[in-house]
Design a protein around this nucleic acid. Sequence first.
DNA 1: CTGATTTCTTAAACTACATTAATGGTTTTG
DNA 2: CAAAACCATTAATGTAGTTTAAGAAATCAG
Lengths: 194, 194
Amino acid sequence: MKHHDLILKNIAKHITLEKEETTYFLSLLESKTVKSKAYILKESESCQYLNFVNSGTLRAYFLNKQGKEWTIMFALKDWWVTDMHCFVKEQPAMLNIVATEKTEILRISKINLDLLFTEVPKFERFFRILFQNAYIREQVRVIQNLSLTAAERYEKFLAKYPQTIQQVTQKQIASYLGITPEFLSIIRNRRAKA
Amino acid sequence: MKHHDLILKNIAKHITLEKEETTYFLSLLESKTVKSKAYILKESESCQYLNFVNSGTLRAYFLNKQGKEWTIMFALKDWWVTDMHCFVKEQPAMLNIVATEKTEILRISKINLDLLFTEVPKFERFFRILFQNAYIREQVRVIQNLSLTAAERYEKFLAKYPQTIQQVTQKQIASYLGITPEFLSIIRNRRAKA
DNA sequence: CTGATTTCTTAAACTACATTAATGGTTTTG
DNA sequence: CAAAACCATTAATGTAGTTTAAGAAATCAG
């Protein structure tokens, strides 16, 4: 499997590209290998890239004033990820993005993405659909965070994410669910007994 | 002020339309007046329209199994709102959308929106930017719900929403913040004393 | 391979927020 | 305009989830 087959398949889900468009698009990408535990973005840095995960897993998290980590998303293979707020508004990053295992990404700079929108307007459609889905997902998460207990959110998490996330620690799952690792441990214990 | 001046200004924030494009776009809209407390969408109905608030305020909320309401968003004048999940995937609505005061909306059906994307591809760009911003907003809300206390979230709410929302009750604000009206009352009391 | 660091678990004490219930105020409706 | 329904507030009591701490298990660095 060539190293950009996956991203082309991802795009083909929503738009159909001509050969030259494909070539042009690929010419705007950079590929990068990220070691396990290496960061591709740190808080307060500038956030120039939109990243596509070709293999591996990235984790995006927010660090609050008290120094607690809150996981915003796990980006598995075939996902797009960046600190969107900072990417779009060209402001210092609020999020940290780190590899939970060896990860290969394809990334496009903001400059090149803007160029792409001008040169191949079809991509406006692609990203319109992508953001539409992202918006829906976040809204569902807001609803679930408001209306479900921690134990129920944990069940949803297990259902949503495949075992693929083996590298992910309990601590990180807890920080995604909005609870402490200690309480997740209790939930898991109760669950195992039931 | 003509009744579609506001929506055209809203669109002009991100794209520039030719005269015929404007005319065509307007031809796809329906305008509607919604009485205070009337619903434009109820759970389990089909959700055919994307709505623009021309004046007034709408409130979108989710009703959980226990019969509790959780407010997803207040859509003020100049906002777009629908149950996006159900609009996009053509599934029965999960949300209820109700007017908190007399409200005028302009709405476009899914069929017409798809037509609009084909006929005036510029709108792909417009909605790409709209969804991008919506995604960012929801993600910020997820972060705040995870990392802030109820009292802190209330401060953010006050800062974010203008007094415009006079018609909104404490109960509704509480359901937006993810707390009970009783606890919001305590927060307001403490705040007044401080 | 070994000591050091990090992770997971358990438990006791604590706190933010929920529940229930009662009261007075406001809005809705016939 | 009166009765009904709903809303905001206060207070007592209850609970989901946190904090702190400590030990056992896993992972990491040299």
